[in-house]
Design a protein around this nucleic acid. Structure first.
Length: 270
DNA sequence: AAATTCTCCTGAAGGC
DNA sequence: TGCCTTCAGGAGAATT
């Protein structure tokens, strides 16, 4: 499932192939994503040159001359650079046909989205309320500490709240909490400043490390040109329920916290 | 305001 | 082997 490292891996993978190219055709096979894809894009996009490929949170931003195409991969989405004559799969909903290659959007569960935004992209309603980028200077333990005071919400849900910080999904929240020894169900308002300093640092380390390894391949995640990610090999908690904790040997527990599966060590995480 | 529940969807996994 | 049920899961919307 694409989290920030997977989205960044995708961005880095597709950018060199499509940046600077002019779009020839926007082929929309299935507009029924999380929100309906605007069919006017079929007329709007062709002829425009792609200036750059950016990212905000888990949103990919294709900066064209007249605006941004904002793409979210949802749960199961992927973007691949393919040949024009490559076979179209069942869940290949959109093709961006450039001069020299095709950018293909696939999303079996259709939880993703595609929006066209003219004007200031940061003011778009999906981006306007987002918290800081986790790998930026603007994100640190102080931010987490300040925003969490008096909050009863579980610390795991707190760091997964996109208004607090973007890009921390279930996998990396689970890992960062395990590595810092914080129990995921602990009330956010009761976590100390010192522990938030460590948590923020660990979130940065875990995300940066995952980007370096090309993301985490679970099920069928692949990068922009089809390669697998290797971070799954380093997961210490996520997906290891029942297996021994690497630090103390206790069997890892799994518990639903806010509708999400959470794996943790009841001995090491307090 | 903050917290919780609901919703979209389909592939994968488990049960029998 | 195969059909049926359950579940995962990002994140905005609706509800309490």
């Amino acid at each position: 499932m694409p989290e920030l490292p997977e989205v960044e891996t995708t961005r880095l993978g597709i950018m060199p192939h499509i940046q600077g190219q002019r779009l020839r055709e926007f082929e929309l096979r299935c507009a029924k994503l999380r929100w309906p894809v605007d069919s006017a894009l079929i007329d709007i996009l062709p002829g425009q040159k792609l200036k750059s490929v950016l990212r905000r949170g888990k949103y990919l931003l294709l900066a064209f001359e007249a605006g941004h195409l904002m793409i979210h991969l949802g749960m199961s989405g992927s973007l691949r650079v393919v040949d024009g004559d490559s076979e179209v799969g069942k869940h290949d909903h959109v093709d961006l046909i450039f001069e020299h290659c095709v950018l293909r959007y696939r999303d079996p569960r259709r939880f993703g989205s595609i929006h066209w935004v003219e004007g200031d992209i940061e003011e778009h309603w999906l981006l306007a309320k987002l918290g800081p980028e986790p790998l930026s200077e603007g994100f640190d333990g102080g931010v987490l500490y300040k925003r969490s005071r008096k909050r009863q919400i579980a610390v795991k849900n707190f760091i997964m709240d996109t208004q607090v910080v973007v890009g921390v999904g279930n996998i990396y929240a689970t890992e960062a909490l395990f590595k810092t020894g914080i129990a995921p169900q602990k009330a956010a308002g009761k976590v100390s400043r010192a522990r938030y300093d460590r948590l923020a640092e660990e979130i940065k380390v875990v995300l940066a490390s995952a980007i370096t390894r090309g993301g985490t391949t679970l099920r069928d995640f692949v990068g922009g040109t089809g390669e697998q990610g290797y971070f799954a090999l380093e997961l210490l908690a996520y997906g290891r329920a029942g297996e021994p904790c690497v630090q103390c040997g206790t069997a890892l527990k799994t518990e639903k916290i806010g509708q999400r599966a959470s794996v943790y060590c009841s001995k090491c995480q307090t």
